[in-house]
């Protein structure tokens, strides 16, 4: 991986600042297509360090009911692949730095063609793809295409992933490793933060990449607890379920702000457990 990628740059600066990363997820086109780009900017303003944007799919097998409902509503509103790419393109006009990760499923990408899609992603300023139903076992060809376009592929590690699988995945992973903190689908239950440190130890031993923890994090306290051992936390269903109720773009922005700011504040009180870069956060909320 020779080309510089916004994700690598962002995690480097997070590390330098001793700051824990906040990665909110929204489904593109939800609660309505008009709000997505504004929501992306709002999330950055409310403390997001990286953004995960869901590409709507009809059969989201690994997601829970909240994200499934969001996908259905986004599809009904006509959020297709071109619309998603246009949203990122719009976002980039004002924000050249915040990394954007597209999260989705294989079939819509294959229908477009992985190669053209990778090039379109790179052209509008997408930094990585997380393809939920493409584990590293099936990712060889895909990986070469993404790498050629300067995109990272983000892989999931589950509590049930064996050390052997982690070892085989690491050489293919880029950007960061996404640790799924519980057994189940997105939004299913709550995180057991006490077991998190030992659970991610095998990933730390196998890889230098930063680790983000997601699935089951919905409150500021849970985010802070997860960040004790991880470099970043991903928040998805908890935010998306709140956005369901938004009646207007303004309301969606308010919901995102009110939800994310306390999470950001809690993360900023987490002292990095790694002595090397245990510096106070440069960006305390209210400062």
């Amino acid at each position: 991986m020779t080309a510089s990628n916004r994700i690598d740059d962002r995690f480097k600066s997070l590390r330098d600042q001793g700051r824990k990363g906040l990665i909110p997820y929204i489904t593109a086109g939800h609660p309505n297509p008009e709000s997505t780009v504004s929501l992306m900017h709002q999330m950055v303003e409310s403390g997001a360090d990286l953004l995960e944007l869901g590409v709507p799919f009809s059969d989201v097998m690994a997601d829970g009911p909240v994200i499934q409902r969001a996908c259905q509503s986004a599809l009904e509103a006509g959020t297709d692949l071109d619309a998603v790419l246009a949203m990122v393109n719009d976002f980039r006009k004002q924000d050249p730095l915040t990394p954007v990760i597209l999260m989705g499923y294989m079939n819509p990408l294959e229908r477009r063609g992985i190669e053209p899609f990778a090039q379109q992603c790179a052209a509008v300023g997408v930094d990585a793809l997380l393809i939920v139903d493409c584990p590293f076992d099936e990712a060889e060809q895909l990986q070469a295409t993404l790498t050629a376009a300067g995109l990272h592929q983000i892989f999931l590690v589950a509590p049930t992933s064996t050390e052997g699988r982690i070892q085989r995945m690491v050489p293919m992973a880029g950007g960061f490793i996404y640790y799924v903190s519980l057994k189940g689908v997105t939004g299913a239950a709550t995180l057991d933060s006490a077991s998190l440190g030992p659970a991610i130890q095998p990933i730390r031993s196998a890889s230098e990449l930063p680790i983000a923890v997601g699935f089951g994090i919905s409150t500021p306290d849970q985010a802070a607890a997860a960040a004790q051992s991880a470099d970043a936390v991903v928040i998805g269903s908890a935010l998306v379920s709140r956005l369901h109720d938004a009646q207007s773009v303004d309301q969606a922005l308010t919901i995102a702000r009110d939800y994310l700011e306390p999470v950001r504040a809690a993360l900023d009180h987490v002292q990095s457990s790694d002595g090397e870069h245990a510096q106070p956060s440069l960006r305390q909320v209210g400062a």
């Binding site: 097998m61 690994a62 294989m106 939920v132 139903d133 493409c134 584990p135 076992d137 099936e138 892989f155 999931l156 590690v157 589950a158 049930t160 992933s161 064996t162 699988r165 799924v180 057994k183 189940g184 689908v185």
Partner: peptide, 20 residues
């Protein structure tokens, strides 16, 4: 051995299901 019938089949599932 990897579960492919020619180009078909395989294990296109989330890592969360892989151990199972």
């Amino acid at each position: 051995p990897r579960g492919h019938f020619g180009q078909y089949g395989g294990k296109f599932v989330s890592e969360t299901l892989m151990a199972a």
